[in-house]
Amino acid sequence: MKSRIGKTALSRGEEYITCEEVITHLLDYLSRELAPVEEREFERHLEICPSCVGYLKSYLQTVRLGRIAMQNELQGPPPELAPELVHAILSSR
């Protein structure tokens, strides 16, 4: 697997990948597509960065909200097809 994460910065004398790297590669991280070493670097960053943790959580909430809000329209009985539409469909056989 090719390395995706490059940019690092020093924080309290230690080297960490940057917020930009974390947010850019969030989808790769969540889909478990990072190499193990990259995943570890990703998690090291999250341990010291509440802002990125906040971003990650709200990103996941966004995905869930999008799904629920759109699929909501499907909850309850599905809409009925108008009789004319059913007729048109059946006569197109």
Binding site: A9, T18, C19, S51, K57, S58
Partner: peptide, 14 residues
């Protein structure tokens, strides 16, 4: 992001 890779705003919890 700033040039050093830090986010330009702090992301809070929802």
């Amino acid at each position: 992001f700033h040039a050093d890779g830090h986010s330009t705003i702090e992301f809070g919890q929802w």
